[in-house]
Design a protein around this nucleic acid. Structure first.
Lengths: 244, 244
DNA sequence: TTATGTGAACTAATTCACAGCT
DNA sequence: AGCTGTGAATTAGTTCACATAA
């Protein structure tokens, strides 16, 4: 029914600020879940599903349906009461909200295991992002191919970032090298940094850093595991009913 | 001054539920930051710092000091007014809160780039966790060495998990294989799962799953980058002052 | 004097529950 | 009849500001 093409803005140039879609801004917690919804929507689309109700999409995304509907309501009113959401159209709307209707060229610094894993990771390569270059200082890696991109010497970082107008840089080097890499990226004009090195980066005002720490979640798991096993022994009278 | 050894429980057996330290429970948001504090504390300790004030530790961890103090207050009252925190002692207290004073044996399923990156990642290997086994189905990887651990065939997963009493499993396989791996881990007795595959896992009640999605943070970056560039063009009167 | 620990105030996020549209 | 969208209620998290202790 509600085909994507008939709605205003579907074919409009992405990045044009003429149509500002989210007047009040989207809550951070919602932004953080949109990629999850997007992935679930892609999976549904692949299975040939064209319409989905909030319950089903919520289940696929691992959240409850009230939260899903509230989240989507921040993007606009894109569902049909009594029916659900058009999958294709919602994919577009969520993509647009996330800024994925334009293509972001990114550079990855570090061609070790992690850099290579990133270059192949589903969703890193796909819609919205394109790996423009991978850098490393290790001579034995330079020139090798990673997912269709040739590894370049780090010395070329500034030239590539500047000439290709790169806004997003990914740091996948050891902790000891990360701040220096960060400084160079920022000096060359990068304003968004995804940091995989296990340390807090210092950046000037106006640069957005997000970190992914591969060990933090493991430590959180340990916390819960410990608590569960403690509860099994310890008959704390006011804690037993807290979670099943 | 306040040496760690003179405080009750320092040398006590970890895992003993006799001393239940956090009566009200620790807020999730706090738990998620404790690993960051722990890392900052280790860095200070390495630099020879023995005492640290909340401002300084907060700066090293990338949070504000009020939040840090509130977080630490949930673990107990381990600072000294007018002075600060004893680094060594606080390392111990935070470690204990996270359940890292005991050693958790973990298995990693998937010996691709990501699995190898994890096996070498600082903090994954270090205190609190020890990689008991790495599994893969790829014959060409089986038998190879990853950070001192030999890659085994996946068929041995159940035997290892059962005999070594593994509580934590890490899934680093492609999305298509992840649910099957998860089911096998759970059936073998694993109750905590760290999932790197880009999909939502289904697990029975009582199993704790946490996911790390390497692309979600990238998408969040794109959202903010888009918003910033939109603001530069678009003179929205009530949005300009929002952030500097 | 200095820096912690914490009630109180505030802000953000979640969940409820139902009006309103298809 | 069914499912969205959303105010209202609730819960969680953050920040303030200062009493308290070393």
């Amino acid at each position: 029914m509600s085909s994507a093409a008939e709605l205003p803005g579907f074919a409009s140039e992405p990045g044009s600020a003429a149509d500002r879609p989210y007047p009040g801004g989207i809550p951070e917690a919602t932004v953080a879940r949109l990629p999850v919804y997007l992935r679930a929507l892609y999976m549904l689309a692949e299975r040939g599903v064209s319409t989905v109700a909030s319950d089903e999409l919520a289940r696929a995304a691992g959240v409850n349906s009230a939260k899903l509907r509230k989240d989507l309501s921040h993007l606009g009113s894109y569902g049909i009461r009594g029916v659900g959401y058009d999958v294709e159209y919602l994919v577009y709307q969520v993509s647009r909200a996330l800024g994925l209707t334009q293509n972001w060229p990114v550079v990855i610094v570090g061609a070790g295991n992690l850099g290579r894993a990133l270059a192949h990771y589903g969703g890193f390569v796909t819609r919205g992002f394109q790996i423009e270059a991978v850098f490393d200082t290790d001579q034995s890696l330079i020139g090798s191919d990673i997912g269709g991109v040739v590894v370049r010497p780090s010395s070329e970082l500034e030239a590539v970032v500047t000439s290709q107008n790169i806004a997003i840089g990914v740091i996948a080097v050891p902790a000891g090298a990360a701040q220096a890499v960060c400084d160079r990226l920022v000096a060359a004009g990068v304003t968004s940094i995804l940091n995989f090195a296990p340390l807090v980066l210092n950046v000037p005002e106006g640069v957005d850093v997000r970190k992914v720490d591969l060990s933090i979640e493991l430590q959180i798991l340990a916390f819960h595991a410990q608590r569960r096993s403690a509860e099994r022994f310890d008959q704390a009278p006011d804690q037993t009913a807290a979670e099943a």
